[in-house]
Amino acid sequence: MASETSGGDAAGGTVRVDSWIWSVRLVKSRSMGAAACKGGHVRVNGERVKPAHGVKPGDEVRLRQAQGRERVVVVKRLIRKRVGAPVAVECYVDNSPPPPPREAVAPAGVRDRGAGRPTKRDRRELERLRGVLGRKDGPSDA
């Protein structure tokens, strides 16, 4: 296991940010970590960073994930290789806000299984419920 850690207590040690967020299991793959950095979804100490930016113990890493959830972690220990979840949790301090309750997140357009494609009538009812003004194709009544 000594080969998996880079000696987080050693002075001057850094690890690439895309590699570190993959190693501590904040993203599923290193390429997803690099894509998040390139897309501006990763900030280290408040600054947007490139995938090759080095992180060191004490840095604050903010990662914006799907559905607007933001993970805020403080680097506690540097690791270069992906490790098991219990070991990965020991490498950072999680300061993330709690996720919103599941009831607060409204499902977007849930239809019954096997209901098929919505008809025009279904679409009009959905628009009426959402408060969207529909188009008027025919002559006006006024």
Rank of each mutant, 00 (worst) to 15 (best):
K56Q: 13
R113F: 11
A2M: 14
C91E: 05
P97Y: 03
P57K: 02
R130P: 07
K81E: 11
S31K: 10
S19V: 15
R64G: 04
N95R: 15
R30Y: 06
L133R: 15
V24E: 02
V75Y: 00
R113W: 12
V87T: 15
W22P: 05
V49T: 02
G109M: 09
K120F: 11
A106W: 06
G54N: 07
T119C: 05
L26P: 04
V27N: 00
A104N: 08
A2N: 11
P99K: 02
D94F: 01
R77H: 09
E4M: 12
P118F: 09
V132N: 12
G134Y: 10
G131T: 10
A36Y: 00
V61R: 00
A36Q: 02
V44L: 01
V72L: 03
A106M: 11
D59H: 04
R111A: 12
G12P: 05
V27P: 00
G131I: 08
R25G: 03
A10T: 14
G116K: 10
A108D: 12
S23F: 01
G109I: 04
G39C: 03
R48C: 09
K50Y: 02
A142H: 13
R48M: 06
C37N: 01
A36M: 08
D141P: 14
L78M: 04
K50C: 01
T14H: 13
L63N: 01
R80Y: 10
A88E: 06
V55D: 00
A66S: 10
P98F: 00
R128Y: 11
G109H: 09
K81D: 13
K136I: 12
R82E: 03
R121P: 06
K76W: 08
N95I: 07
A106L: 15
V49H: 00
G7D: 10
V61C: 03
M1Q: 13
K28H: 05
G116I: 10
G13L: 15
R48Y: 02
A106Q: 12
K81R: 15
E125S: 11
G40H: 01
G114V: 07
A52W: 09
S6L: 14
R48W: 03
R62A: 08
T5A: 12
D137F: 15
N45S: 02
H41W: 07
E60G: 06
K56Y: 00
D94N: 02
L126T: 13
G84R: 07
R124A: 11
A36W: 03
V132H: 09
